[in-house]
Design a protein around this nucleic acid. Structure first.
Length: 290
DNA sequence: TCTGATACCCGCT
DNA sequence: AGCGGGTATCAGA
């Protein structure tokens, strides 16, 4: 590993912080109308304000207040307005050379053939493991060809999370293998290891339409967002926004395929398979790294 | 403005 | 046939 990676590795977020952060996010979004102060929040979580501030900032790179700013409707609208349509088409060229994508996670993707998709994972061996992440317990799934699945669970929900993922490819063989999946987790959640020279290999297993939607998501740089209808337009089917939403929701490699960067046209977050709080957390966390 | 209800959209099961 | 991580439009608050 090179110098850059080593130097930056100490910003690796600590998985244990997420539970605290999750509660803070829930509080500030529930009560966003009356803008709770740090003291209010700390009191309700029964923690000293200074420690809470420290935990939160270590996790997000932003103070709770700045974070709140970053996940408001206004801010979301600004993300969308910046460059909605041209963004998807040009971001690859811009991104590889320009600063806009300097901190983004680079991936190379390949899609499974329609035949492989219909086989529902038959003949495929999928290794999986749970690892702490900035967004709770992360379930990592990988095939020989690369990362195939990434999901999230709150503590205690791991089994439901695993079931959710395994039934997507019911005919695959599943092997618990923490050792095989740990390197993926370590790399995905450490922005210091995101480098274009060594892109992360991922495998997209889904229907043709779904794969096209996921590929469009991959072109949204960190710190930007698009709407479901933007993606529909990109695919040449401007009225298919609802179908796009459904496909986005079935994204098996969440976070890496940045489905959290798809928002409603109003700027509302509208939904997230692993919980809206987590979507908010991802957007805020990225705001702190960008 | 903001919130609900309604109508239409489209790929997947 | 029916269900969504949608969207535009319109009626009441």
């Amino acid at each position: 590993m090179n110098m850059t990676a080593t130097l930056k590795s100490d910003i690796t977020p600590q998985g244990a912080d997420y539970e605290t952060v999750r509660q803070v996010i829930e509080l500030i979004t529930e009560d966003y109308r009356d803008q709770p102060s740090l003291e209010d929040i700390a009191a309700r979580l029964k923690q000293p304000p200074t420690q809470l501030q420290k935990t939160f900032t270590r996790w997000a790179g932003l103070s709770p207040k700045a974070f709140l700013q970053a996940v408001t409707l206004d801010h979301a609208k600004r993300l969308l307005r910046q460059e909605s349509m041209p963004l998807l088409e040009t971001s690859i060229e811009i991104g590889l050379s320009g600063p806009g994508r300097l901190h983004d996670l680079f991936v190379t993707h390949e899609a499974m053939s329609p035949g492989e998709w219909k086989a529902r994972g038959a003949g495929l061996t999928i290794r999986y493991g749970f690892h702490p992440s900035p967004f709770g317990q992360a379930l990592v799934m990988a095939t020989e060809r690369g990362l195939a699945g990434l999901a999230f669970a709150d503590d205690g929900n791991e089994q439901a999370c695993l079931d959710d993922m395994t039934c997507r490819w019911p005919n695959a063989t599943y092997v618990r293998d923490q050792e095989a999946t740990a390197p993926y987790a370590a790399r995905i959640f450490d922005p210091g290891r995101w480098r274009p020279e060594e892109p992360l290999r991922i495998v997209l297993i889904g229907s043709d339409f779904q794969v096209r939607v996921w590929q469009a998501l991959l072109r949204i740089p960190m710190g930007k967002a698009v709407t479901y209808s933007d993606i529909a337009g990109e695919l040449g089917q401007p009225t298919a926004s609802r179908a796009v939403g459904a496909a986005v929701g079935r994204n098996p490699i969440s976070f890496v395929v940045p489905c959290h960067r798809a928002l409603g046209k109003s700027g509302a977050l509208t939904g997230y398979h692993w919980g809206l709080t987590r979507k908010r957390a991802m957007l805020g966390w990225e705001a702190g790294k960008a």
